[in-house]
Each structure stands twice: as C-alpha cells, then as structure tokens.
C-alpha cells in the first residue's frame, strides 16, 4: 500500500511538473526562434508574452473536434493519448536528485529503452487510423526511422551501463558522482556515445532535423494532418515532453545527473536538462530537415558501426583500464 501511495504521489508530481515545463518550453521556443530570426517572438499576452501558452491552449480548446468520416475512429482517437502516455512514462526512472526518483528500477535503462520503443506505435496508429495518404506516408516513415534508430540508441546507452556496471539509472549517476562524468573520462568513449545517444533520441522524438514523419513542406502535416483541437495539441505536448525527457535521460546517463558543486543536486539536474533542451532547439532552428534516405544512411552507415565499436571498446576499457 505504501508503494501505491509513493507511486501515485511521484507520478502525479512528475506529470504536473512535466506539463508545466512543457507549457513554458513553448514560450521559450517561440522566444528563442524569434531572436534567431531577428524578431521579438510573443510580446502581447502577459509580461514578455509569458502567458502565450495559456492563450494557445484556450484557442485549441475552442476548436471543433473532428473525426474524419472514413477514418478508423477507435484508432484515430486512441493515438493522441497513447503518444502522451508513452512520452511521460519514461520519466518514471529518471533520478532528479540522489533521493528524488519515482521508480528506481534495477533495469532502469532497459525500461526507458523499452518504453521509448513503444512510442512509435501511437505515431503509426495515427498514420493508419487517419485514412489519409499524407498521414499514411508519415506513419511509414516514422516506423522505418524508429526501428532503425532503436539500434544506435541501445548501443549508445550500453556504454554508460558497461562503464558503471549497472542498469540502474541512479547507480549510473552515483558512479559518475564518485568517479568522473561519462563525457569527461574516458571522454573518447563518453563523448561519441553521448552524441549518438542524443541523435538517436531526437530521431525517436521526431524532432528537426529528424521530423520526417511530419515534414510539413512535403506531407502537409504528416501524421497530424487530420487532427484538430486538443487531439492535435496532445501530439504537440507528447513531442515536447519526449524532448524534455530525452534531455533529462541524456543528462543522467552522460552528464553526471544531479552531481555538481555548491548547489543541491536537483538544481544541477534541472540546469543540465534545460541546457540540453535549449541545445535541441538551437539545432532545430539552425539545421535543415534530412531526406529519408539520408537519414537511413546516417544511421546504418555511421551510427550503428560506431556504436558497435564503442560498446566493444568500453568492454575492453573496463577490463584493462577501469
């Protein structure tokens, strides 16, 4: 019963915090995009346009909720909540400080990889259930992309697991606090693994430069073509939560998680997560979208072989130098 209360409290807390940060992230992204385009971004609603996300949500709530007549209604309506759930569920194993973690699973890394792999199903369901050619193409692209990038993601995540000797996310962070962060030493393993991990995470979250399933210049809006109002908003939220969680996981596995001087652990974790988050937006407004075949070539020709070498090298490092 104690576990039940513990789980409910943490679960509720994580959802509230994630959704609040997501709303703020919308504002942050628009501000940042505005500055990068030499404009001001939102300025009207609230001080510095801070209430813009609230206005956006109110607008979306007013929109008509449409289910296309020829769509597979059950699947069409199932996809948006499923996507949001899959994105939020990953947050359960992230340690926000040495004591704040919702479920410190023994196989935490495996859990977040498995739930990440589930994340493609809602995207596919949306593509198929919409009964729309553009949505369908988006869904097919999403599956190909996700199945491919699953491989380098798992390989890159294995590097901190091998180096720290544990699959528990909190143990990996504790190891980094006691020794070195993964990206500082051995940096020749940590930095490439970190890079591959973040790339693959971005590809799984379908963010630019990997937002090929949506690709508004070629596929109208990809899988979200037929969605309106709050159902569309849920996809949007899922994408932001996914990016946020990916940043937190990257910070925990490679950047030392809550480890840092002067301030309590949670502030370090939040700071590292937000820096990675901002970096992802930076790339979003700097880079162009890959073509689908280029994306596959990048994955299978570069990331997968590099990942295999990194995993083997980590094992050698642990045996002979660790």
């Amino acid at each position: 019963m104690n576990d039940f209360i513990h789980g409910s409290l943490y679960g509720g807390g994580i959802i509230v915090v994630l959704l609040t940060v997501t709303a703020m992230a919308l504002w942050f992204e628009r501000k940042m995009a505005g500055r990068m385009h030499s404009r001001l971004g939102p300025t009207i609603v609230g001080p510095f346009g801070l209430l813009q996300p609230v206005a956006d949500v109110v607008k979306l709530l007013q929109k008509e909720d449409i289910t296309p007549e020829k769509a597979d209604a059950a699947l069409f309506n199932l996809a948006p909540p499923m996507g949001a759930i899959a994105a939020i569920a990953v947050a359960a194993v992230i340690p926000f400080s040495s004591s704040i973690v919702a479920a410190d699973l023994e196989v935490g890394v495996l859990y977040l990889l498995a739930i990440g792999a589930l994340g493609v199903l809602p995207v596919f369901i949306a593509g198929w259930g919409s009964n729309n050619k553009f949505a369908m193409l988006g869904g097919m692209r999403a599956i190909a992309q996700s199945v491919s990038y699953e491989v380098p993601l798992v390989l890159a995540a294995m590097v901190p697991v091998i180096l720290s000797g544990s699959m528990k996310v909190s143990d990996i962070v504790a190891y980094q606090a006691a020794h070195h962060w993964m990206v500082t030493w051995p940096f020749f393993l940590g930095i490439p693994a970190f890079a591959i991990f973040m790339l693959a995470m971005l590809a799984e979250a379908n963010r630019i430069p990997f937002d090929i399933p949506e690709a508004e210049s070629e596929l109208v809006a990809g899988i979200t073509t037929e969605y309106t109002g709050m159902k569309f908003a849920l996809f949007y939220v899922a994408e932001y939560v996914h990016t946020l969680v990916a940043s937190a996981v990257g910070a925990a596995l490679f950047l030392g998680g809550w480890d840092g001087p002067f301030a309590p652990g949670i502030w370090w974790m939040v700071a590292k997560t937000l820096v990675l988050f901002a970096f992802i937006y930076w790339t979003r407004y700097s880079l162009l979208r890959f073509r689908s075949d280029q994306l596959m070539a990048l994955c299978w020709r570069w990331l997968v072989p590099t990942g295999v070498v990194l995993v083997a090298a980590s094992a050698v490092w642990v045996v002979f130098a660790g």
Partner: peptide, 9 residues
C-alpha cells in the same frame, strides 16, 4: 524485470 523489459523491447 529484465525479462519483462526485453519482452517489451
């Protein structure tokens, strides 16, 4: 739990 994770993955 390991088997469960691998099953889903």
């Amino acid at each position: 739990p390991f088997l469960a994770g691998v099953q889903v993955l």
